[in-house]
């Protein structure tokens, strides 16, 4: 398709090095960012915003490592342009913890050994967070399906399932105690 180079000759370089300037909403805060227009969201997050919690494993959509949430949906930040990310709520692993501490998933992943090397972990956490938004008590079958886009080479996924199930349980318990508790 579209042969734009002589056979054997190197492809043409990026022609534009001028940066574009825009506001991205990341982890609940608006950030003014300047970046080259051909940069992916992954590159903008890591290189222009110092949010290195988002990892990369292939940059081609073949591993799920760079997953972030965009308006709550898991997406591959390696295949979204920075330019395509305005007006969207972006959540990275850095945004999961609040002032009261980590998200329940962050605790259970650590407690149950669901993070071994920890490199695929941010992607799994964000995918799992989206799963729990939709389904407070996901079955194993649901987890197998919904996590099938995140590769992990360390755990064999089993401890990841267990960690999500435990977090779901804690969130359900907290949810029901919040509802049942009297608010003074």
């Amino acid at each position: 398709m579209n042969p734009t180079t002589e056979a054997g000759g190197p492809p043409p370089p990026p022609t534009s090095l001028a940066k574009t300037h825009m506001v991205l909403r990341v982890n609940g805060e608006d950030h003014e960012v300047a970046f080259r227009p051909h940069k992916t969201l992954l590159e903008v997050l890591r290189e222009d915003m110092d949010l290195t919690g988002t990892k990369h494993g292939c940059e081609l959509g073949e591993c799920g490592t760079c997953t972030v949430l965009m308006d709550g949906e898991p997406k591959l930040s390696c295949l979204v342009l920075g330019l395509e990310s305005d007006g969207v709520d972006i959540e990275t692993v850095e945004g999961m913890a609040g002032p009261e501490g980590g998200h329940p998933l962050q605790h259970t992943f650590a407690e149950l050994g669901a993070a071994q090397c920890g490199y695929c972990t941010p992607g799994f956490l964000l995918t799992a967070k989206a799963v729990l938004e939709d389904d407070k008590d996901p079955s194993r079958e649901t987890l197998v399906e919904e996590l099938s886009g995140n590769l992990c080479r360390c755990t064999g996924y089993l401890k990841i399932y267990e960690a999500i199930e435990l977090a779901a349980q804690r969130m359900r318990e907290k949810g029901s105690s919040d509802e049942g508790g009297s608010h003074v």
């Binding site: 290195t52 919690g53 990275t92 692993v93 850095e94 962050q106 650590a110 993070a115 920890g118």
Partner: peptide, 21 residues
């Protein structure tokens, strides 16, 4: 026993710095 990994929370919060970070 099975105490939490000492680097567990750093890994789940994105704080662990890998080489490319």
């Amino acid at each position: 026993k099975s105490p939490i990994k000492v680097d567990g929370m750093a890994k789940t919060t994105g704080e662990t710095k890998f080489a490319d970070d």
